[in-house]
Write a protein that binds this DNA or RNA. Structure first.
Lengths: 331, 331
DNA sequence: TTGAAAGCGCTAACAA
DNA sequence: TTGTTAGCGCTTTCAA
């Protein structure tokens, strides 16, 4: 593979001239420029991003930690981050956390090893303390969908509790009283907040909470199916169900279909949803929209400001929005 | 960030000694090793993968081109490739082709710029000729789910035509004659092959092909919905449907549910499926399994053999397998 | 078992 | 407008 030296030799100029022309820095005689460009073409020269990184002490790489590559939620996150990075001509390095603090740590090590200029963390298992410690190191990072005291300027946040409350309020306003809930893993903060929203809505409406109307899932489709089964079999008279994500709602719907529980005639549904999956269910299901797409874009913007040491103020907090569809009704 | 020089200084040894200890090359006095390790810990030293790349002329990075990051199919591909690369301590660089030859070319440029040791291409838009040309360059690559004459040793292949035929044979064996088909985009080879399998099955069974029983989709869920609608409305007497992927089958199922077409009583279904999505439909749907997971793993294995210039023979061709579920029945 | 020194491909002062 | 030169942080011969 041709090096800058070869190009310089062929064009009869100095290496630094070639370097300047590549990077468009300064002025050159038209003749010189032509010769260099011709030499580059002839040799099929492609600058080494690696050598450049070493020389400039900036890799132009940006890391992104997600839990998994699979699943519509993470795919959308990666997609948005890549799109935003493309705008800035930066490389994306992805890594999976695999549902453990150790996995997340390893991912960050990878970002450090590659000397990423910065990274976006969708971290679920590192403690606030560990993140605060990490923030003392020179490489900047941003937290996507997480709120850590002391790191506010790097946090892209969403009010999960309010979102959950809005969803359940909607059901209550339709006259529902016996409302079941499928939660995410309650060892995770955001999951607990969504659940808290459910509790807040009930309590505001003076509806007594019945623990047996709540089942814990793991955000996977199968867990939604099983939770719906458990809830429906113990409470065949429930009139509404709130699911804390779209995948579990898909599973729940499958259970209702299989058991001839008509939606929304027998059971009204409302879900959390980040990727408008609920629009493609049968029937379509109302949902509070969790705007992960926009949040991911903003995460990159904030990160780049951090990297470039700019001080631009960007709104980092996002509000839930209720999208009404057909899977629920007034009773 | 601490450099190897700092570690050497602190430990009172030469830089090359530190380097050797890091890479475990040669023998050292226990005392030296201890001193160096202590110095590394004290300085929180992390070797720069970038500097190492430059020095060794090997970046330890591997590229992967997919069409998009979203969608279960590509997510699974990335997941498997990453898992396999982790085993070999290699970094993954992903890029999206975005449904165009230009996009795929740009992705490859990126791999070259980063001096990836090799890359895996799930290329859909580069011509065979262009790929053959690319193969003349020194960086090795492997083609995932593609067959190019002259590049056989780098192709991980699947018999899409046979798979399609097996799916439709199954329906024919159940007594179906009026079998509709939702194809993928027919400008793509693999899509055409799946469709060809449908045609082959009919022709083998002496069933006349009715073009109006076929509709072209784009592998997206929505297109499956629309295709099912078109097909069912023009042929309410069709008894079976073959979908060329799982997403479109999901859309078709939604149409049938919404219009009270019972499955499998009125319409039997069989699909292509790479990620066992059909197991989570209601009802579950039989499918020919397209083993993209295994193929992705093998792609990496083959690539690594290429990179390391090993000559290990690996089976690169995969056979379809029919998975029977509940969405079809004998008539 | 360790050290000295050259070099990977590029950029960036400083000079001219 | 262009050339000279010294690194960037690491590995790797060769020598000791």
């Amino acid at each position: 593979m041709a090096r800058i030296k070869d190009v310089a030799l062929l064009a009869g100029v100095n290496r630094s001239t070639v370097s300047r022309i590549i990077n468009g820095e300064g002025k050159f005689r038209a003749d010189t420029k032509r010769k260099v460009e011709q030499a580059m073409a002839e040799l099929n020269y492609r600058p080494s991003a690696i050598a450049r990184s070493l020389a400039t002490a900036s890799s132009n790489m940006t890391g992104l930690l997600v839990t998994y590559y699979t699943g519509g939620f993470f795919g959308e996150m990666m997609n948005q981050v890549q799109t935003e990075l493309d705008l800035h001509k930066k490389f994306l390095i992805t890594a999976q956390g695999h549902h453990s603090a150790e996995g997340e740590r390893e991912a960050i090590c990878r970002f450090h090893a590659l000397r990423c200029d910065g990274y976006v963390l969708n971290s679920r298992y590192l403690s606030d303390d560990e993140l605060r410690l990490l923030a003392k190191e020179p490489t900047p990072f941003v937290l996507l969908d997480r709120s850590v005291e002391g790191l506010e300027s790097r946090c892209i946040t969403f009010d999960h509790s309010l979102a959950g409350q809005m969803a359940v309020d909607h059901l209550i306003n339709q006259g529902h009283r016996k409302i079941a809930c499928i939660t995410g893993p309650l060892n995770r903060t955001n999951s607990r907040q969504r659940y808290q929203g459910y509790l807040n809505a009930l309590s505001t409406a003076d509806i007594t909470v019945d623990q047996t109307l709540c089942a814990e899932g793991n955000y996977g489709r199968e867990s939604g199916y099983l939770a719906a089964k458990k809830l429906y079999q113990s409470h065949p008279d429930l009139t509404a169900l709130f699911s804390c994500n779209e995948e579990m709602m898909g599973g729940a719907l499958q259970f209702f279909h299989e058991n001839n529980v008509s939606v929304p005639q027998q059971v009204s549904l409302v879900s959390f949803d980040s990727i408008d999956r609920c629009a493609s269910f049968y029937p379509t299901v109302s949902a509070v929209h969790f705007p992960i797409s926009k949040m991911a874009r903003v995460a990159v913007e904030v990160l780049i400001n951090l990297i470039e040491d700019k001080d631009i103020s960007i709104d980092r907090h996002f509000e839930p929005q209720l999208v009404i569809r057909h899977g629920d009704r007034v009773i």
